[in-house]
Design a protein around this nucleic acid. Structure first.
Lengths: 225, 225
DNA sequence: CTGACTTCTGTGCGTACGTTCAAGAAGTGC
DNA sequence: GCACTTCTTGAACGTACGCACAGAAGTCAG
């Protein structure tokens, strides 16, 4: 559901400069300082969880990939479940920022198309196994929901935020006469949520890029006034 | 992505009478007869896998829920992974039969709407935890793909079958002037695959039935000629 | 009845997992 | 420099897992 551009250092630019600088706030704290970057470690864990899933990612995998010892991970992030949920939260936070920024434009449909095609950008979607990983929120829905109340809450809230943001944009576009008013903006937004989640999921199993783009165009054309 | 009507005995009617009678073929075989029904056990395992996922369902869970000892399960179905994949295959086989039967009609759009609303029929979607479970193929995509080649194969083939079947139906409906020809049938079918998979997935986290139906109607309206 | 064959039952094995803990190292503030 | 706090390290723990196996139980052909 989201792609991240790789930075020059090989890590992903999940956080903007503002929130990154916030991490240097343990200046006034006593005690031995942490030897690893907390945010960067969370980002790296996110990419691992993203491509392998929650259950298939062991603590040992994380220790190996992050170069941080078990005890430090537990001390910093709590147990595995809490670590994962924190990664999901970060994932959505970044995606939502991107969503809002992209849809704040007119005409809307091209922007909408870009949002939808994001999961289809195979060349930008790199994981440690070299395949697209779908949307982390969607993966969480499949794997943790409904056994985990907290995961359900995060997932539900994310979906709700998506539809709220897209509904607002569609309302404006309907008012501008760009999008058909045969359906309510909320219904159209819900439809787009299903579409992007389905695309993200199905893409995990391999993606025919041309077919995916044609499908997206078919859906977007259906919205045109 | 699929609902099953509960039978009077509390089990699910996954198999039709024909394939069920095939199971009484161990009449001429020697040795101690199996004390449990293989198909029925597979069905029950399917519902368990369906609601909990692959990783979260332990052998012990299966032994408890199926009332079949570990050894018997291994002897009959092989290891856990093979057992699961067999359940996924059965799941899709039943769904595909339903899909073909439902779409073999004219006009097509109401039938298509019924296919799409299937995951939204909360009252018929019962799991052991009392919530909808999404599509087992979709769940498998999220959890096992891309680490498991055989799972990927099953999932990919299922998606392909879906789009093939729906494309055929849409071609006929386009020829009949019922569905718009602004997009190719294959693109429309792909779009519907994404839609139904997204709906199944998102439904796992809780479903606003009215919103889901409105979204489906918005998509189906976009197909109308 | 007997022998060949198949399935059932439950115990046991090795492993890998998530998690904890104690001791030491590396800082900070007075 | 001393007390205090936090982080690091690596070993260890308990558990639950997937899986194998040996002996009992049942069926059928001759």
């Amino acid at each position: 559901m989201r792609t991240f551009k790789k930075c020059r250092n090989g890590s992903y630019d999940f956080l903007n400069a503002k929130s990154r600088s916030r991490s240097i706030e343990h200046v006034a704290r006593t005690g031995r300082p942490r030897e690893f970057n907390k945010e960067q470690t969370l980002e790296r864990a996110l990419t691992l969880f993203w491509s392998r899933g929650y259950g298939a990612t062991s603590i040992q995998d994380l220790v190996d990939a992050l170069a941080v010892e078990r005890g430090s991970l537990y001390g910093t992030f709590g147990d595995k479940r809490r670590f994962y949920l924190e990664a999901v939260r970060l994932y959505w936070e970044v995606y939502e920022r991107h969503l809002i920024a992209t849809l704040d434009t007119s005409p809307l449909l091209p922007a909408l198309r870009e949002i939808l095609t994001h999961p289809a950008r195979l060349d930008e979607l790199v994981s440690d196994v070299g395949v697209p990983q779908g949307c982390l929120v969607g993966n969480t829905t499949a794997e943790l929901v409904p056994q985990d109340g907290e995961a359900t809450e995060i997932v539900t809230r994310s979906y709700r935020r998506f539809t709220d943001i897209v509904t607002d944009a569609l309302s404006r576009a309907q008012a501008a006469g760009e999008v058909t008013d045969r359906a309510h903006p909320a219904a159209q937004a819900q439809m787009l949520l299903y579409l992007v989640q389905g695309l993200s999921l199905v893409s995990r199993a391999g993606l025919d890029k041309a077919a995916a783009l044609a499908a997206i165009d078919a859906a977007v054309d259906g919205l045109r006034a």
